[in-house]
Simulated assay, not measured.
Amino acid sequence: MTGLASLTWLIGTQALSDHILARVNELVEAGTEYAEACAKVTDAADASEAWAIAATRQTWVRRHDVDPDEMPVRSLYVLERTATHVVVAYTDVDQAADDTDDGDRANLQPQWIAQNDHSQGAEYPFDALDMSFELAAWEPFEHLLPTAAVPAAGTTGVGE
């Protein structure tokens, strides 16, 4: 999923606007001019760069061009976002890569076993998301409200 139009459809104008404004404010607080920060964040969000769009309650899936032997995790769920990274939990590890979940017989590489803990998660840098994953789903808190109108599958959600 790429582009601001796709993100708008996925979570709605208000939620996306709030998210982008938060990223702009982070850059402004770090010393970037407001107009430059706006351009940088919107360009990055339109290009689906993780530092601009990664957020809590997102699911990221392994890109089709990534070798499963190099990245056995098929999907990640973002538990928390900070200014420098996300905290993720593995949600779908290839069976061939991890047939015992953890322990001495796990086929998962040792540096990845901690991220298979769904209760705590592990820090994941934005560039690691960009290298191997793409955004698949985003469930902003607004969608949990009983009055939220979420577009039906196969529609644009605009004027329908």
Score class of each variant (00 low, 15 high):
2 T>W: 11
3 G>K: 09
5 A>I: 11
5 A>N: 10
5 A>C: 01
7 L>I: 03
7 L>C: 05
8 T>D: 15
8 T>S: 14
9 W>H: 13
11 I>V: 15
14 Q>S: 13
15 A>C: 05
17 S>M: 01
19 H>A: 14
24 V>F: 02
25 N>Q: 15
26 E>W: 01
26 E>C: 05
27 L>W: 04
29 E>D: 15
29 E>I: 04
29 E>P: 00
30 A>L: 09
30 A>T: 02
31 G>I: 04
32 T>N: 00
33 E>V: 03
33 E>C: 02
33 E>F: 00
34 Y>N: 10
34 Y>Q: 13
34 Y>A: 14
35 A>M: 04
35 A>R: 08
36 E>S: 13
37 A>D: 07
37 A>C: 04
38 C>D: 09
38 C>Q: 14
40 K>R: 14
41 V>I: 12
43 D>N: 12
44 A>I: 02
44 A>K: 01
44 A>E: 03
46 D>H: 14
46 D>N: 15
48 S>I: 01
50 A>W: 02
51 W>F: 12
53 I>C: 06
54 A>T: 03
56 T>S: 06
57 R>C: 04
58 Q>H: 03
59 T>W: 10
62 R>M: 05
64 H>L: 13
64 H>S: 15
65 D>L: 02
66 V>C: 08
68 P>Y: 11
69 D>H: 07
71 M>V: 15
74 R>L: 11
76 L>H: 04
78 V>F: 03
79 L>N: 05
79 L>I: 12
80 E>R: 14
80 E>D: 10
80 E>W: 08
83 A>F: 01
83 A>L: 09
83 A>P: 00
84 T>V: 03
84 T>K: 07
89 A>I: 13
90 Y>L: 01
91 T>E: 14
92 D>K: 12
93 V>A: 13
94 D>Q: 07
95 Q>R: 12
97 A>D: 03
97 A>Y: 06
98 D>N: 15
102 D>H: 12
102 D>V: 08
102 D>M: 11
104 D>H: 12
104 D>M: 14
106 A>N: 05
106 A>M: 01
107 N>C: 04
108 L>K: 04
108 L>N: 07
110 P>I: 10
111 Q>L: 06
111 Q>N: 11
112 W>I: 05
113 I>A: 01
114 A>T: 10
117 D>M: 01
118 H>C: 02
118 H>S: 11
119 S>C: 03
120 Q>P: 00
122 A>N: 10
123 E>D: 15
125 P>L: 12
125 P>C: 02
127 D>A: 09
129 L>Y: 04
130 D>L: 08
132 S>M: 09
133 F>P: 07
134 E>Q: 12
136 A>T: 05
136 A>H: 14
137 A>H: 13
139 E>A: 13
140 P>V: 14
142 E>C: 02
143 H>A: 15
145 L>I: 03
145 L>T: 14
147 T>F: 13
148 A>E: 07
148 A>F: 06
150 V>S: 01
151 P>F: 05
152 A>P: 00
154 G>S: 09
155 T>D: 09
155 T>H: 09
156 T>S: 15
156 T>I: 01
158 V>F: 08
158 V>N: 02
159 G>K: 02
159 G>M: 00
159 G>C: 00
160 E>G: 10
